[in-house]
Nucleic acid binder design. Structure first.
Lengths: 339, 339
DNA sequence: GTGAAAGCGCTAACAG
DNA sequence: CTGTTAGCGCTTTCAC
C-alpha cells in the first residue's frame, strides 16, 4: 500500500542530478545554480521528501534530539517545566525525548541508558541519585534542573533560588505576625528538603531567632501533605494558631484539605503557605498563598543552556531564577490580635 | 577529555572476535559458544558499550521511537494521558518524542514533519486538523487520541465514550431534579464540542425533552470558563437556580471561581458539573462533581494499540473507554424543594 | 559457530 | 558549480 519513503537518491534521480547537489540545495550550503536548486526543491516537494535525520546524524554526530527526565509529569509544576522545555526545544530545532523517573533511581538509570542508546545530544534531568559520578558516567552533556542540582557542583544547572524563595516566604509570614512555621518537606533522602530546611534555619538565625523548627516530611503529593497536616494537628498542644510552610503546593493543598476534613478553618485556625505557584492553588477557598517559582522559565532556560553546551560553549553556569510571592488568602494576618 | 563512545568494533577488538559475533552475543540471536558470549559481554561492560540505536534503526527500519502530540501538557488531563503513554512506552521498550501543539494546526503539522524526519515508528495524536488526508499524508502509523478522533473514521483511535459520558452527567443531574443544563463547550471549530452538544441534545430528546440547550463556548482554560460563566450569569432572567455542565474541568473550575467573584454560592445558587476528573477538582469548595475520563488508561491504551499497529497488526480499532461519575458537592439536590 | 561483506540514507571531502 | 567517493555503526545474509 504505502511505498517506501523517498530518499535523497530518489530526489536526485527525479531532478536529474546527484545526491550531493540535492543535499546542498536542501541545506542551502555551498554555491548552487538557481535553476538546479529550484528543480531539486520541486522534486523534493513532489515526492514529499523528508530527510532521514538518523542517517544524517550518523555522519554529523548530532542527533538533534535531547532528553528530558523529570520525576512526574502529573505534577503541574513539572508539567509547566516540560512545557517551557518543549517550546524552547522546538525553537531550537530540537526534539524532546521525554521520560518520567517517578522518583526512582533505577528508572532514572534506565532512562539515561535509553537516552545514550538514542544518542541524544544532551539531556536535562532532575536527578534522584546522589552521586555525581553516576551521572557523569553516562558521558552526556547534562543540565540539571530543580533543587537536586545543588548536590552536583560539577554540572551546569538551572533552578529556583532556594534561599531567596525561603526568605520571601518567611519575611511574608513575619510581616503578618507569624513566628517560625512548621515545615512540610519532601522525602528526607532528597537534598531539596534539606536545603529548604537549612535555608529556613539560617534565615531564622539571621533574625536572632531559634534555629529550631518543627518539620514533617511527605512525598510531594496531595495525600502526603494531607497526612502530614493530620500529624501536625495531632501533635499540637492547644488551640493556638498554627503556621505551616509546605515545600510544594500539592502538599500545601493536601494540608488545606486535611483542615477542612477536621472542621478547622484556614486561615483562621491554621495558616498555610505553599511553594511552586501551580494554577491549582487558585481553586481552593481561600486561594493558596504561595512562593511561586518560574517553572516555565526554568524549562526554557535549561534547554537554552543545554543547546549552548551542545554547540560547544561548555559554560559551567549555575542559574538561579528568583521566585515571587503570590498572596491569595491562606495566611492569616496575626497583627490585628493573634487568634 | 571525553573519548568517543565505544562502537561494536571496539567491543569486538577487546573480545578478540568479529563485529557479527558481538552483535549475535548482544542480541542473543543465533547460536554462540558460551565462552565467547561471556567474553563479549564482559568486554561490552568494561567499555561501557551502549549500542547506537540510530545505526541499528537504519538497517532494521525500526527506530523504536514513537511520537506523542497533544494540545497542552499544562492541562492536567493531558499530563495524565502523557504519563500513561510514557509508562507503557517504557514497558514496550519504546522512547517517546513529545510535542505540544498548543491547539495550532501549523504547529501540529510542524511537529508531524519533525516526527517523520526522526523516522518514528508511529505517533499518537490529538489532532487539530479537520481533514483526514492531512494526517494520512504523513505516511505514519497513527493512533488518534481523544474526541478529535471521531472525525476520522479511517484511523485507529482511543477516546472516552462521549455519549456515555454525557449520559452519566445528564442522568445524574436529572436524578437530582435538574432540567437541561447550560453547556460550556470548547472552541466551536473543534469537533469535541459539537459532539458533546449533540450527545446532550440526543439524550434530552430521548427523554422527551426539548433539544434546545443554551450553550457558551470557551477555550478549555480556567479563564475561558470564568468568562463564560459571567456571560451566563449576565443573561439569566431571574434568581432561579442555574445548572452548568462544562466540557472540561478547567472551565468548570473557572466557572466556579466566577461564582465566588460574584458573591454567588455553589451549589446553592448555581450547580456545576465538570468533565475530565482532574485532581484539582478536589481542591475547590465545594469539590467539583465531575464525569471522570480514564485519562491514564487512554494513554496506555493508545501506546499499546500503536505498538501493535507497528508490529504489523493493523487493526483499525476504535476503543471507547467508559467514564465514571465522581460526586463531590458542586451540584445541588433540587428534589428537596427547588430553590 | 564464526567472520567477511554489503548496505541502510546521508554528509563531507575531494576531484573534476 | 557539480559529481564521485568514502564512510557513520550497525544488522544481515552468506560462505567458511
Amino acid at each position: 500500500m504505502d511505498d517506501r519513503r523517498p530518499t535523497i537518491h530518489d530526489v536526485a534521480a527525479l531532478a536529474a542530478t546527484s545526491k550531493s547537489t540535492v543535499a546542498r540545495a536542501l541545506s542551502d550550503k555551498g554555491a548552487i545554480a538557481a535553476g538546479v536548486r529550484d528543480r531539486v526543491l520541486a522534486a523534493a516537494r513532489q515526492l514529499g521528501y523528508e530527510p532521514n535525520q538518523m542517517a544524517g546524524s550518523m555522519r554529523s554526530g548530532r542527533s538533534r534530539l535531547i532528553g528530558l527526565v523529570i520525576p512526574d509529569i502529573a505534577n503541574p509544576f513539572w508539567a509547566e517545566v516540560a512545557r517551557g522545555a518543549q517550546e524552547r526545544a522546538v525553537e531550537a530545532g530540537l526534539s524532546l525525548l521525554f521520560f518520567s523517573s517517578d522518583w526512582r533511581s533505577d528508572q532514572e538509570a534506565h532512562h539515561m541508558r535509553a537516552l545514550v542508546r538514542a544518542r541524544v545530544d544532551g539531556a536535562i534531568i532532575n536527578t534522584v541519585v546522589d552521586r555525581a559520578e553516576a551521572l557523569h558516567a553516562f558521558g552526556l552533556p547534562l543540565v540539571l534542573i530543580g533543587s537536586s542540582a545543588e548536590e552536583f557542583k560539577s554540572l551546569p544547572a538551572v533552578g529556583s533560588d532556594i534561599p531567596q524563595t525561603v526568605r520571601l516566604g518567611l519575611d511574608y509570614l513575619a510581616g503578618r505576625g507569624h513566628g517560625a512555621p512548621t515545615l512540610i518537606l519532601g522525602p528526607p533522602q532528597r537534598i531539596a528538603g534539606r536545603l529548604f530546611a537549612s535555608s529556613v534555619r539560617d534565615h531564622l538565625a539571621a533574625r536572632g531567632l531559634s534555629r529550631d523548627v518543627v518539620t514533617e516530611t511527605a512525598d510531594y503529593t496531595v495525600e502526603g501533605g494531607h497526612a502530614a497536616m493530620l500529624r501536625i494537628l495531632d501533635a499540637r498542644h492547644g488551640p493556638c494558631h498554627i503556621t505551616v510552610f509546605a515545600a510544594n503546593d500539592l502538599m500545601a493543598l493536601g494540608a488545606m484539605m486535611a483542615l477542612r476534613d477536621c472542621g478547622l478553618e484556614c486561615p483562621r485556625d491554621v495558616s498555610i503557605l505553599g511553594c511552586d505557584g501551580i494554577v491549582a492553588g487558585t481553586f481552593s477557598s481561600p486561594g493558596l498563598t504561595t512562593v511561586a517559582k518560574p517553572a516555565r522559565a526554568l524549562g526554557t532556560r535549561a534547554v537554552a543552556m543545554l543547546a549552548e553546551a551542545i554547540e560547544g560553549h561548555p559554560a559551567l553556569t549555575r542559574v538561579h531564577l528568583p521566585s515571587r510571592l503570590i498572596e491569595r488568602g491562606s495566611v492569616a494576618d496575626l497583627r490585628l490580635g493573634p487568634r
